[in-house]
Design a protein around this nucleic acid. Structure first.
Lengths: 233, 233
DNA sequence: CACCAAGTTGGTACGACGCTCCAAAGCGTG
DNA sequence: CACGCTTTGGAGCGTCGTACCAACTTGGTG
């Protein structure tokens, strides 16, 4: 039944778990979540699917591990700075997440929220909560409100970061930055073409959207939530 | 293969687009995003895949249409009340989204953020922004900050709502069958078993998580953001 | 009525996917 | 050298989205 015909020419270097994860992140960044297939991974690493499944059990686990790797790395590089005010520290963590997701497209945003929902005891959730929560305590928020305050901050941060994430491009035709601008203009004109009687607010803000910076707006949102927290006392 | 013998006994009632969408929502609610397959849909509707693709072009479009249907329905039923303060109106919209996603599991949360990111000119995005934005204006926020203020609110609402969404009955969880309560207890004990020196905050809040209500916490978060907005003046 | 073009349906077929399984190949130890 | 344990490459299975098509229904025209 099985034809034996093998001359596989084994690789000189052993396949490691880190190599698989790095290659997976590369695939995810280049083509979104749909680009991470075991077959593409096998080809890029010049191996078979069996070897991959031997090191990482699952496609889902691989996605989780990739997310964990990127997020913990982003949080580590940020924590090496000198101490500052609680507000500054919260801004640091938030911007680290913002930049990480801006760099790695939308698969990271989707997967991060998914991991927080499904695995609240995992290192990603715990690290983010702990990092933010300590500063909430230092802000002077009463102990009874620590959980609510921290949850609100985390909810805002992840919500903003998810909605600012760039889309995954499966289009391999034009420049990605060019698409970004065109997409933005198309949104503006579409908002302008709305019925002004039913959508007066959209008409009022369409001018502000054209010259806004996502990062600045994100920081403004953080400032708003922080201002609300001090009012909680 | 050469000769076809057919007498397929056509259905007495015609297949409509609404039937397909309703059946799709049913499948999504019962088994998560993975349960919506064209084959399962065909079987439930007692038809073939061709008929489905004739009415809805794509699985992706079907998902988008399903989210749009659920969200606009949730926003409509909420708007029939009498007028109230801007804060109250914002709470209404937020709770309508919260309840809709709580009712329809996590597929709706994921798909809603996806739609806002990919299709900012679509009716879902526009409706949510317009509904919230008007109240932001009525709150007394200066016109130059309308866009930032509304974005902050929407980011928080969708972030909180996504992270509070119940998990789908999907495989990938560590434990396959775990009801809400067990999952919650497991999280609490996992947090308690963390190293107290490295994670003092998690230990401090683990007591609060045991007796907290998601809906109340969501409203607290809304109040915090609103308080921060009044501080913006 | 017959006839026909457009609209609609049920089902088959194809390529790609995740994943299981297993023989073969490397590797350490005697 | 031989022998177990680890690791690899790839074939095969079941399922998916969906393109495609022949058959059927419908509505209009003579």
């Amino acid at each position: 039944m099985a034809t034996r015909d093998r001359r596989p020419q084994r690789r000189n270097q052993v396949l490691s778990r880190e190599q698989i994860i790095d290659a997976a992140i590369g695939l995810l960044d280049s083509g979104g979540e749909g680009a991470l297939t075991v077959r593409a991974l096998s080809e890029r690493l010049a191996t078979g699917s069996g070897a991959i499944y031997y090191h990482v059990g699952n496609r889902d686990q691989l996605l989780d591990t990739a997310t964990e790797t990127v997020i913990t790395s982003a949080l580590e590089t940020e924590s090496s700075q000198a101490v500052a005010t609680p507000e500054e520290e919260i801004r640091r963590v938030a911007l680290a997440l913002f930049d990480a997701i801006a760099e790695h497209h939308q698969w990271l945003a989707t997967r991060l929220t998914l991991q927080i929902v499904r695995n609240p005891a995992g290192p990603v959730t715990v690290e983010i909560f702990e990092r933010i929560g300590r500063q909430v305590g230092a802000l002077g928020v009463p102990r009874a409100s620590w959980f609510d305050a921290t949850s609100t901050l985390v909810h805002y941060i992840l919500g903003a970061v998810s909605q600012n994430a760039r889309m995954d491009g499966d289009t391999s035709g034009i420049q990605p930055d060019m698409d970004r601008e065109e997409f933005f203009d198309a949104t503006s004109t579409a908002w302008q073409e709305l019925d002004p009687e039913n959508y007066p607010f959209m008409h009022a803000i369409v001018g502000q959207t054209k010259q806004h910076d996502d990062r600045d707006q994100f920081l403004t949102g953080i400032a708003i939530v922080l201002a609300g927290l001090t009012h909680l006392r």
